[in-house]
């Protein structure tokens, strides 16, 4: 595993549209876009699991905090923004997972369980951390595929958006995705 680079909104993505920053007002536009995107995510959470209690607001806040504490972004396309939201989401989840695992391994304080569901959360934490590590490795082999997986999985970009973001055809997206998916699956099963 290679050292993680600090996230930066201004980091150039291959094939991704990149514009320079203009002013902080754009943060608000970004905000409303994040909100829409993450609401969509949250809604999909509810669709997949009617008993889910995840509040979309919490998601939005976490992602937004990530974005807002990054350097001020420039004028940015919606697509590029989605890309950034995906990055933010990955980071939120990875850090939450790390934190949870740290707590699980024992920081002294007993966990107070006010309702159930924490076991599942602990399992999810391992998955997310493993995926994160595998994605870092994939980025070494093929940065475009890593970006693709990050965007589609964490940001919810669809195939055509991904194609546009990366400047490749949809067929190429599907092809790259399939290989990356298989590779990641194997990494998760047998890390290293």
């Amino acid at each position: 595993m290679v050292p993680r680079r600090p996230p930066s909104v201004l980091e150039s993505e291959s094939g991704a549209p990149e514009l320079l920053l203009r002013d902080r007002r754009l943060l608000d536009d970004l905000f409303s876009l994040t909100y829409e995107e993450l609401r969509r995510l949250a809604a999909s959470v509810r669709r997949h699991d009617p008993s889910a209690t995840l509040s979309p607001t919490a998601l939005v806040n976490e992602a937004w905090i990530k974005l807002a504490s990054s350097p001020p972004p420039g004028t940015i396309s919606r697509l590029h923004f989605k890309r950034i939201a995906a990055r933010a989401m990955r980071q939120v989840l990875v850090e939450a997972a790390r934190r949870r695992n740290a707590r699980k391994r024992g920081s002294g304080a007993a966990l107070v369980t006010l309702d159930d569901g924490t076991d599942a959360a602990a399992a999810g934490a391992d998955d997310v951390l493993a995926l994160d590590a595998a994605l870092d490795e994939l980025a070494q082999l093929n940065p475009r595929q890593a970006t693709m997986v990050e965007s589609r999985f964490f940001g919810g970009l669809d195939v055509s958006e991904t194609a546009e973001l990366l400047g490749i055809s949809e067929a190429t997206v599907l092809r790259d995705w399939r290989a990356a998916r298989a590779w990641l699956a194997r990494q998760l099963r047998t890390p290293g």
């Binding site: 959470v45 998601l59 989840l93 949870r100 919810g156």
Partner: peptide, 9 residues
Amino acid sequence: VAPAARRLL
């Protein structure tokens, strides 16, 4: 990502 997010957040 949703189920993972739900579990973690």
